[in-house]
Amino acid sequence: MFSVRFWGDRGSIPCPGPATVKFGGNTSCLEIRADDRLVIVDLGTGVKPLGDWLMGNDFKKGPLDADIFITHTHWDHIMGFPMFTPIFIPGTKLRIRGPVSYEDDSLESIIGAQLSYRYWPVRQSELAATIEYAQLKETILDLGKGLIVKTKYLNHPILCLGYRFEYEGKSIITAYDNEPFRNVFPTDPQDPGYDEDAAKEGELAAREENEKILRFYQGADVLIHDTQYTQKEYEGGKIGWGHSSFEHAINSAHKAGVKKLVLFHHDPNRTDDQLEELEKGYQRRIRGKTAMEIMMAREGLRVEA
């Protein structure tokens, strides 16, 4: 059994309220199960209900042992950590891994600093769980018992990793937060900053980096992709913000032969009605053109690889 369940799918900030009941208002948190192994991706506010659920289920079988992968350290991806109940339970073992920009503090101090008196009534040193932190780069990790994770840098204003989990020939991939690489150098010869070589090298570099990301998705059974914007919204002032459009995610997933694409990291202002309409609209648009299945992430959704 190899599956992913969504506990938080919202981008930027939690947004509870009557307009987000169906898809949920919690920020990023995924529960991946490879038979009896537990992997958590991101510690957004969705990790609070996940922790509560684990307390009532996994803990019956003994202490919790889990691998946690952080895609990047932006607030919405780490802010649920202080309310993840298992950290207060003796015997819990957590290995937290993620990327950190070179100019920044260690992963432990970025995530752990949320547990200091100025933000929270419990300090990190008071936690009962055993927690190991490790900084990740582009690499392949063998998590044991046939579970492997490969990582790939994505394009976001801070160092951010995509994860490709592979188990028994199946794959579940995360690709958020991510914007397609683009040439950031002027290509118009009339532009005062124009430089022919930089323009050409920029085009080439962006194309090659995007191709690398496509190869990273290649043949995925499940791809969870950043789709914060529609293409129109993206082009209307969101370029460079580090997120993708539905159109980009669908096109690149189709090109890479992905089987199931989960649209993820919903804009905080997007209502249930809008998300439903968008989901139906995109499903209609691809009907008959691809064998790929697409679905909008929602809290509680479970997808098998």
């Binding site: 920009s101 070179y102 100019e103 840098y153 394009n155 976001h156 204003p157 801070i158 160092l159 690489f181 683009r182 040439n183 950031v184 150098f185 070589d197 930089a198 090298e201 920029g202 570099a205 962006a206 980096e209």
Partner: peptide, 11 residues
């Protein structure tokens, strides 16, 4: 040029 595209302008 490639370093800027890959690492981002801020880094």
């Amino acid at each position: 040029v490639r370093a800027i595209i890959m690492l981002g302008i801020n880094t």
